[in-house]
Nucleic acid binder design. Structure first.
Lengths: 246, 246
DNA sequence: ACCTGAACACCGTTCAAGT
DNA sequence: ACCTGAACACCGTTCAAGT
């Protein structure tokens, strides 16, 4: 508990509050010890601590030892609740998927816009936890929140009259795009050197040899142009799914 | 050099051959030492050794210490040629991108088929080196081989009459899809537990609660059905790019 | 049943000292 | 300039011993 960070601080403040509360007359059985007992170890507590570290310092800092330190215990103790690091990552992902907004599925409006809204919400959730997007890419979630999302996408594709076989394969495409774009963004915002990499790419595109890479040179500005790429991308993929028979 | 593997073996055989060759009369200056000197350390040698380890045991086994061991030296020695682990991974990726088949760009046939052929080649290259697909997802390559691939895609989109602005954003979509699908597959074939995860997902889809997930239950077989998903996906994304104005 | 300290078998990276 | 051994500051996971 040497490193100061926001999580530790807020825990400390919370503990202070509890301690102060315990000193008011309304509290009948004050703890015998000065400092309140540390919270009992639970799977959920471990996942929350891990998520806090991931948001603050990136997924690569979510190590068993660091999570344990945050919870004022030893790494070995975590293995009662978590099988291994991969299990922890999967649990973290499942946890944040609960916050995806699925309400557009039953709202009014054109189905393509509603589908894009759900996908955008999913991408934004992963953007907010950029480190997890990469593990979402690599793992195969099968938790209830993931299933709800898939169900939601299938319902909207059906509402749009997309044939069943195209819809079934289409959800893979949509999820791959939504997850992939968040993973890319996650990599960009996560690592310090990623900005250098991005600028190296922009420089490479802008300064591309006109003879060897004529199209890149011609379209350099378009290639790196700003705009609502996310919305356009969703509409393009949706249109492709709807228009392409198997 | 305790662990036996194919790379070590083939290096040994190669060394044997050199030794035998050195004993023939045609060789004027035989080495004073019995065993031939180990090959000089080069950046390319390091990358090749790293790729061999990645193919054999996965990217997570490509550690500085393991690559160094393979090359019969210490990890510290690699830092003369490689800045850090990320640099090594980027160099490995650039190396394999050289093997992508870009010839469909100038071949005969419908542009959509030729575009899909190039993308399929790219995906297959990443499939053959599954561990690198994930790092391709996270990093921003800007090497000459990457630029050639982008140039190729832009040329084919232009041949198809896709408007410049859609083509410029479209290459991102195509690359994201082609890279993402390989990264998924790479994760699947790379880790032992990934098969369990996949079967858990299939079981979760097949056994989905009919009341809660009616669409998943209805389409379970379609969702996990075999077929040329890669080709269909490329056609769908291409169609979407061509049909969706900004 | 849960928790712990200690151990095992690893990592990436740096650096002074050698050649 | 290149290479090396040793060190530093970490990892995940296991396990016997405690409560």
């Amino acid at each position: 508990m040497v490193v100061a960070n926001m999580v530790v601080t807020s825990l400390f403040v919370a503990n202070m509050f509890v301690t102060l509360g315990a000193m008011t007359p309304s509290n009948e059985r004050p703890s015998r010890r000065e400092r309140p007992a540390k919270p009992a170890l639970t799977r959920d507590g471990i996942i929350q601590a891990a998520l806090a570290i991931a948001r603050a310092d990136g997924l690569e800092k979510v190590t068993m030892r660091r999570v344990a330190e945050q919870l004022d215990t030893g790494a070995a103790s975590l293995y009662v609740y978590v099988r291994n690091t991969a299990d922890l990552h999967a649990a973290m992902l499942d946890e944040i998927l609960a916050t995806v907004d699925l309400t557009p599925a039953t709202a009014a409006g054109p189905w393509r816009q509603r589908l894009a809204a759900v996908l955008t919400s999913y991408s934004l959730v992963l953007f907010a936890n950029p480190a997890l997007a990469q593990s979402a890419m690599a793992s195969r979630p099968s938790g209830p929140n993931y299933l709800s999302l898939i169900e939601c996408l299938l319902t909207l594709l059906k509402a749009g009259g997309v044939p069943d076989d195209q819809a079934a394969w289409g959800v893979d495409l949509l999820m791959l795009y939504a997850t992939g774009i968040a993973a890319e963004q996650g990599a960009l915002s996560g690592r310090a050197e990623a900005h250098d990499e991005y600028h190296a790419l922009v420089a490479a595109l802008r300064g591309a040899d006109t003879a060897r890479y004529p199209e890149i040179a011609r379209l350099a500005d378009q290639l790196v142009s700003d705009g609502d790429r996310l919305a356009w991308g969703f509409q393009a993929v949706i249109a492709g799914i709807a228009a392409t028979p198997r």
